[in-house]
């Protein structure tokens, strides 16, 4: 934070990790590796964006997936019903998510602590049940893309790579944004709110606006990623778009890596998804995947609540410069 122009090892290390994950499948054009990286990158975007609200601002949301789901739906609707080009659909998905956060923000961010967490569960369920009834979005059956839509991107196979390159870009952008926010005046305001919201108000932070801005900032990328995921998937349904479990998994990733740091959510997302991938494919754990994940989460919560990166930063002060 000291010198604007100085070398930022924390940023470069974070970007390098994400870039490495992103580039890994590209030289060999390996579709299986691509799927692995794709899942990890989506998790990185989700965790990094939620971290702005949870890690920097101190508001724990169980409804992060709402933005992903709504963005996905808006994008799919435009792609399917209006044959909108993918970039436009992605932007529209992000805008819709940001708009929802803006509209909700002032109202629900009044609630603190567990009440905020509860209302976000309510928002997620209200959205899911509403979309299940909303005819333009296909009600309970959702929206399935016609195969011809992929023609514009050189067929389905090519389209998958287009989606992949886009997600790599979004993940890099997300990490950059997370770093810039953390080291900005806005970020200092958010962390002040996290530490003591009443004191923050007395110090002159316009808390309702600052919190709403953080909420909007955390919503946009999930909205964009939702479009990519469901475009790749070919269809979107209410149950997939607004799965409460996704929000909670994202929280787990942040806890695993360390909340409030830039690197934490990246490592948490990578660790969680790799572990999950291993459990799902392992013959022993295939059926016990949820159990193992639950035990892992419990152990983190009980024994290292600061997460891996937080723990390292506490233990080794010199790491604070590198692990931003």
């Amino acid at each position: 934070m000291n010198k604007i122009a100085s070398f930022h090892p924390g940023l470069w290390l974070a970007l390098a990790v994400v870039a490495a994950i992103g580039i890994w499948p590209i030289p060999a054009q390996d579709a299986a590796l691509r799927e692995v990286s794709f899942t990890v990158l989506i998790a990185i975007v989700m965790a990094t964006s939620l971290n702005v609200l949870m890690g920097y601002t101190g508001y724990v949301s169980f409804g992060h997936v709402v933005f992903y789901g709504l963005g996905g739906y808006v994008g799919m609707y435009l792609l399917n019903d209006y044959h909108a080009p993918l970039p436009l659909a992605i932007l529209a998905g992000g805008a819709a998510a940001g708009l929802l956060a803006f509209l909700l923000g002032k109202a629900i961010l009044k609630l603190r602590g567990a009440y905020f967490a509860l209302v976000t569960i309510g928002v997620n369920e209200a959205m899911r049940t509403f979309i299940s009834n909303f005819e333009p979005f296909g009600a309970s059956t959702g929206i399935a893309l016609q195969f011809s839509v992929y023609g514009a991107y050189g067929g389905a196979k090519q389209a998958l790579w287009v989606v992949y390159y886009t997600i790599v870009g979004l993940a890099l952008f997300g990490v950059l944004a997370s770093y810039l926010i953390r080291h900005s005046k806005f970020g200092l305001g958010l962390m002040t709110i996290r530490e003591d919201e009443d004191a923050a108000e007395v110090m002159g932070i316009v808390t309702p606006n600052t919190k709403t801005l953080a909420f909007v900032a955390s919503a946009i990328l999930p909205g964009m990623v939702g479009v990519l995921f469901f475009f790749k998937n070919g269809n979107v349904e209410p149950g997939d778009a607004f799965r409460l479990g996704v929000s909670i998994e994202t929280l787990v990733m942040i806890m695993l890596g360390g909340q409030g740091t830039v690197m934490g959510p990246i490592l948490g997302a990578l660790g969680y998804q790799r572990l999950r991938g291993f459990l799902l494919t392992s013959p022993i754990f295939k059926n016990a995947q949820l159990v193992v994940a639950g035990i892992l989460l419990l152990l983190i919560v009980l024994f290292i609540p600061a997460g891996a990166v937080g723990w390292l930063r506490q233990r080794f002060a010199w790491l604070r410069k590198v692990l931003a």
Partner: peptide, 30 residues
């Protein structure tokens, strides 16, 4: 579980109870 996190920030108890939920549902499903 809960006794260990009862005085921690509320996120800890939320996630601890959710972890218990995952374990039961996982075992139950299996």
């Amino acid at each position: 579980t809960i006794a260990r996190v009862i005085n921690a920030p509320y996120l800890s108890t939320l996630l601890a109870t959710f972890a218990i939920n995952m374990i039961f549902i996982g075992l139950g499903t299996a």
